[in-house]
Design a binder for these strands. Structure first.
Lengths: 205, 205
DNA sequence: GTCTATAAAGAGATAGAC
DNA sequence: GTCTATCTCTTTATAGAC
């Protein structure tokens, strides 16, 4: 019994090593550009070991993306409901996103590969959308609805604009290499974004 | 002499056929997922004909992307300088972008492949950024600077927010299949976006 | 479960006829 | 310039020893 458990643990450790290696290669070379040989080398196991844990290349890829999407980025925003002063809350929301996303190569690569493989694996893109994107938008949308003094006319559209600005900032600056051509500090973006959101407030004028 | 011209024309027609076929396959399967055999079949020519026009797979891909980026989307916004009433101008700008982008599968695929191959071909991403994205942002930024009555505090950041909201809308709704999960009409987004941009105007309150 | 070795198919690129 | 046929290397996936 003890032996069986020990075996199982060793096996799980191998599985983790495989997933780690797979992540490196899939994120660098994309799905089609990744060979199982390179994954085996990167993971430090033989190719057959991979096939004993995953049925084929597609299963490995799906398992990797699902694990990353669900386990790591499910709780991007922890609280169940947002509260606090609008400008402070929005700033904290934006900075949480930028910290956990723009400065995290793993998240950036995940976003990139989700977009790249969205035709080949549409279910993966939908899972990502529901797990990573939708939650933040719903939370913010509820907040806008609960704070009519901000003068937001369409809470859903406004929350899309809020996060969309951040997402596109990250995509353009970090993935499309925009920051090497025309740098724009994230601080300036956040300041401007918050000003646009709160400047219609009836408490301000 | 006439024969020579005739030959040249035929050759150019073949080249166009190859680029058309290459576009279909590269956009569907990505760079690594595309085989020269499939391009040949899709284009209706032999593989060797491709190699007589393009040195290798990489050259073909680069030529295709550069042609599409420069020839088709250089003049996304025609005017040299923006003018008109803010809300009308912003609406026209947003609708031009959404019409030429969100409802154009070719543009969507180009954006997707630029993101997907941004590591392998960073120069391509930069060309895309400079040709397609930067121009619109600069035009709008100048307009905001010329219209201080709008109360925009940071023209560059605001123009990033404006176009970034549209880009991310397209990416999320069309590429990540967001519209199949939670549809959001582009009209609502544009209305909200324009309201945010003009509601600080000193002419309004 | 894990390894080495290999089978079978597909890839990029070229040779040679016309 | 264009085609058919082919070469060589890499790919996914499996067989068989331990």
């Amino acid at each position: 019994m003890t032996l069986a458990v020990s075996h199982s643990l060793t096996s799980d450790r191998k599985k983790e090593k495989i997933l780690q290696g797979a992540m490196q290669v899939f994120f660098r070379d994309g799905y089609a550009g990744t060979s199982m040989d390179r994954v085996a080398i990167e993971a430090g196991v033989s190719k057959q070991t991979i096939y004993s844990h995953f049925h084929d290349k597609e299963s490995l890829f799906k398992a990797l993306i699902e694990q990353l999407t669900i386990a790591r980025f499910q709780a991007l925003f922890e609280s169940d409901q947002l509260s606090g002063e609008p400008d402070q809350l929005l700033r904290q929301l934006a900075e949480t996103y930028l910290l956990k996303v723009a400065e995290d190569r793993e998240y950036l690569s995940l976003l990139k590969v989700i977009i790249a493989e969205s035709s080949r694996f549409p279910e993966m893109a939908k899972l990502y959308y529901q797990t990573v994107i939708q939650r933040g938008r719903q939370l913010l949308s509820q907040y806008f609805d609960a704070h009519p003094e901000l003068g937001i006319k369409d809470a859903e559209a406004a929350s899309h604009i809020f996060f969309g600005s951040l997402v596109s900032f990250v995509v353009v600056q970090e993935i499309i290499h925009g920051k090497e051509i025309m740098p724009l500090s994230s601080q300036n973006l956040v300041d401007c974004l918050i000003d646009l959101m709160v400047r219609g407030s009836t408490f301000k004028s």
